[in-house]
């Protein structure tokens, strides 16, 4: 009897899978990455793959060997020829692809920029998907730092280069948050140093911070190179319980530091959700369920309500994702 039930269940399962496979010809979507061999894109691809299983689309990932400005053009041409319905792309150039993207759109293909945009050429794509509203990054990072040091003591920032636009925006927001929010009145930012996103320079700058500011209790490194270098320094000096390091990091690079307790938590966004949102958005637009105009709101499973912002930009999450011992094994980028 039990055997029969199991068999029936299996049969039902297969039936469901078959019907899901039938729906798989719904539409064809391709994601063109910046270049091959970049684990960050594997995560975005994972989001596409899982979403396509749910909503029934055919997905493929392609990418050129190098991230040079024109290297994606042959790939876009090929996808137009293949007759895909959606081209999602992490653009290598803000404008070298304008002509070929126009060609794709003229053929009725939905063009999405995912994880990066063609700034200044927004008219040449239909919509843009970014992981997070970058104005939240600064306040999120300050809150995480505060929670680690009991909202008290001297802190410093270890950034990328002095000109890095994203980092500078975040640092400005951190300073503003520290100055204006009374919750952080006992936290004092004593220095901002620049490791130029090079491991050696970041290590040297971190060492210098430790000797110049003996009372330092925390370092925020809003760059993946900086946080890894900073964590390595406190780990080898054995002072992780005195100086807390956090910032923006890649789970794959930070996993060991989190597991051995050097870094209790750090943040980033989920590239996986970008692929997930892009697939659901494409499905909605192609099937007439979502109107691609500024201000439209729609629901995406597990992400909640998404709003199309100015210039047709969408964010997958309002706040940064915090990685710690409990969840870090779930992320592989």
């Amino acid at each position: 009897m039990l055997k029969k039930t199991v068999l029936a269940g299996l049969a039902l399962g297969f039936g469901l899978m078959a019907s899901a496979a039938m729906a798989a010809s719904n539409f064809k979507v391709v994601y063109i990455g910046k270049n091959t061999g970049n684990p960050y894109f594997d995560s975005i691809t994972g989001g596409f793959v899982d979403a396509c299983k749910k909503i029934g689309c055919e997905f493929e990932f392609v990418a050129p060997a190098t991230a040079e400005a024109t290297s994606q053009i042959p790939f876009i041409e090929a996808q137009i020829q293949r007759g895909v319905n959606v081209i999602a792309i992490a653009p290598n150039s803000p404008d070298a692809m304008n002509q070929v993207l126009d060609k794709a759109r003229a053929k009725g293909i939905l063009v999405l920029t995912v994880n990066g945009d063609i700034v200044g050429s927004e008219g040449h794509r239909d919509a843009n998907i970014l992981p997070v509203d970058f104005t939240k990054t600064g306040p999120n990072q300050v809150e995480l730092m505060g929670s680690m040091i009991g909202y008290k003591g001297e802190i410093a920032i270890l950034s990328a280069t002095t000109e890095a636009p994203d980092q500078n925006t975040w640092i400005a927001a951190m300073k503003k948050t520290l100055a204006e929010n009374p919750k952080y009145k006992d936290m004092k930012l004593v220095a901002t140093v620049y490791g130029d996103d090079q491991p050696e320079k970041s290590t040297t700058e971190m060492e210098a911070l430790l000797s110049n500011y003996p009372n330092l209790v925390g370092v925020i490194a809003p760059t993946t190179v900086g946080i890894a270098a900073g964590a390595q320094v406190v780990k080898s000096r054995g002072i992780a319980n005195k100086v807390h390091v956090t910032g923006l990091g890649l789970p794959s690079e930070m996993r060991d530091f989190v597991k051995d307790g050097t870094v209790s938590a750090f943040q980033l966004w989920s590239p996986y959700n970008e692929g997930w949102l892009a697939a659901y958005f494409a499905d909605g637009v192609l099937n007439g369920k979502i109107k691609n105009t500024v201000g439209t709101k729609f629901d995406v499973p597990s992400l909640g309500s998404i709003t199309i912002l100015e210039k047709n930009v969408m964010n997958t999450q309002a706040e940064l994702t915090t990685f710690d011992k409990a969840n870090i094994d779930k992320f592989n980028f």
Partner: peptide, 15 residues
């Protein structure tokens, strides 16, 4: 290169 790109072959294969 057009043939292989159209077939979505990896750039490594193309090289």
């Amino acid at each position: 290169s057009t043939g292989m790109t159209t077939a979505n072959l990896l750039p490594a294969t193309q090289l």
